[in-house]
Design a binder for these strands. Structure first.
Lengths: 145, 145
DNA sequence: GGCGCTGACTTGCAAACTGCAAGCGATATT
DNA sequence: AATATCGCTTGCAGTTTGCAAGTCAGCGCC
């Protein structure tokens, strides 16, 4: 059913933000600029959790905050997302340069390894920060463009 | 926007059927067993065409039939679909064996080359027929299972 | 050339889903 | 004790979907 899981406008975006941008909290997703409604966000987080793609942990020193994290199943989506990113960069007018695409393609293995490393070590700095601003836009619904 | 394009339940399924199963006509999609409504199917085909992912050609010897075909942009989605297929096979209870997953991963390059070849030569026999019955199920909404 | 059939769609309408604004309850913070 | 923050839930209007039915332009045949 894999496709079923992502057959809506927001689920993959949430996974991407978790993986590529290092988002952790409800608020971060909410303010990510794509304008997801809070009820829908809550629902999608619930479903992704139910599907075993992410899990929630309450932060130790602040009981209000919930931290969302990918599971292993979730991080295994990295290749899918990367290929989609590459596809988007190549075919959409996202301002991605050829050089950047080449680089992403060459560095596929490295990027994936890095994604997994960050996930394992709970390092939530955005993956590929250099690419993030431009490249992630290729995966983004633009609101104010 | 790449994600935007597939932020619905059916678009990616259509692309998959076009690429992996070799579907060509409206009727084939309609009867593919996933139960897409005809109005929605018409709409999705229109959008995918507008997005430059597929194109329609009227069949020479039968003016009733429209043949849908991926464009180059469309066939470039093959890596995405393949990764998703692998992910689904690994993590969903789709009956995929470990051996099969291994094989898919090892043959990644070959499978992609083969997809492109079939597309170029308008060879519409299903891609990876051996895997199709089992593996494609991993990408499928199951209705009567 | 009229007749039924097929394939690719529309159309109409009820039901489901979504977006927005507002509100709520449980922690922090001061 | 008062106020703010965070992660939701609720209500409701508007949009999208699913289903059944109907339309319409080719065929294929007598």
């Amino acid at each position: 059913m894999s496709l079923e899981q992502f057959g809506d406008r927001w689920s993959l975006l949430v996974v991407r933000d978790l993986m590529v941008r290092g988002y952790r909290t409800f608020k971060e997703f909410q303010e990510s600029g794509e304008g997801i409604a809070t009820n829908i966000l809550a629902d999608r987080l619930r479903r992704l959790e139910a599907a075993g793609i992410l899990l929630r942990e309450i932060e130790e020193n602040d009981g209000r905050r919930t931290n969302y994290r990918l599971t292993e199943k979730g991080i295994d989506l990295a290749p899918v997302l990367l290929e989609l990113l590459i596809w988007g960069a190549r075919h959409e007018p996202s301002g991605a340069s050829c050089a950047m695409i080449d680089e992403m393609e060459k560095n596929r293995t490295w990027i994936l390894a890095e994604a997994r490393r960050r996930w394992r070590e709970r390092d939530s700095t955005p993956l590929i920060p250099r690419f993030d601003a431009q490249a992630a836009r290729g995966l983004t619904r633009r609101k104010a463009d």
